[in-house]
């Protein structure tokens, strides 16, 4: 295959970026999208030019590092596919493919195609965890979890935190991501004690980072490489309303007189 990649080049956050065209030839249809970028970079390096910066790690669709806007769609045209698992057989010979970074106010560009997604980490740090003592792993199945709950929690837990949902959203909303994380923990008994605090803290963290809010366009779920269902946003809304209106954090501590000698 012969292709032209029109790639966004921006040396740093401080300077203006622009598109540049990179023709590549002799691409096998079995190449992954990242392998095409690797080819371009090898050529650039051999010509003593600055290679294109992009993110990747696992190359097997599980880490969520790869993050490219391909022809206007996060992770490219295939449903349920990460960029690293997108193969060139889904493109045609002679095609010009536009490659952009995932921009939003909360995820600014660092260089070329790399954006700063640490906002997602800060949302996780705010409450996307359960508080338990670490140590020896407990025996399996000591806490009963029904099969249907476990399955639902697993669907939500399959979110790899890539941020495609944010890139796809006209409001740059992170609600699908937050919904997946909140759902995953709130469905399981281990997540129950901090359930109300978690959803509130994660929503506040999400607002603080400057992400938008859901206007119900549902572009996120179409772009999600893990097919996180958009109904989880309804669940996030429900969890949040419940916690916001009925959460036990209100009203301060109960007055409780101590014994005096």
């Amino acid at each position: 295959m012969n292709l032209v990649l029109r790639i966004w080049r921006q040396a740093s956050a401080e300077v203006e970026g622009r598109f540049e065209d990179y023709p590549v030839s002799g691409i096998s249809t079995d190449y992954s999208f990242l392998e095409v970028l690797d080819r371009i970079n090898e050529d650039l390096v051999s010509q003593n030019q600055e290679p294109v910066a992009y993110e990747m790690d696992c190359r097997e669709g599980i880490c969520g590092s790869c993050s490219l806007m391909i022809n206007g769609t996060p992770h490219g045209p295939r449903p349920a596919t990460t960029t690293c698992q997108l193969y060139m057989r889904h493109f045609h010979d002679g095609q010009t493919i536009t490659v952009e970074p995932w921009l939003s106010r909360a995820t600014p560009v660092i260089k070329d195609l790399v954006v700063d997604r640490s906002a997602l980490d800060r949302i996780m740090q705010s409450a996307g965890y359960i508080s338990v003592h670490t140590g020896e792993a407990p025996d399996a199945n000591t806490i009963p979890v029904s099969k249907s709950r476990a399955d639902k929690a697993f669907v939500a837990a399959s979110c790899i935190g890539c941020g495609a949902c944010i890139a796809a959203c006209p409001n740059a909303s992170a609600m699908l991501f937050v919904a997946a994380k909140v759902t995953h923990l709130s469905l399981l008994p281990q997540g129950e004690p901090e359930r109300s605090h978690r959803v509130r803290a994660m929503v506040v963290a999400m607002d603080r980072e400057g992400f938008g809010n859901c206007s119900n366009h549902y572009e996120c779920a179409k772009a999600c490489p893990k097919s996180i269902p958009v109904s989880l946003i309804a669940r996030l809304n429900r969890e949040f309303q419940h916690a916001g209106l009925l959460g036990h954090e209100y009203g301060g501590p109960i007055h409780h007189a101590a014994h005096e000698e």
Binding site: M69, N71, T98, L103, S104, A106, P170, N171, S215
Partner: peptide
């Protein structure tokens, strides 16, 4: 208000493929 916040969150509203 919600609409304004949302457009602030996505300053570069029109990307190449759109």
């Amino acid at each position: 208000a919600v609409t304004q916040e949302n457009s602030l969150a996505r300053p570069e509203s029109c990307h190449a493929g759109q």
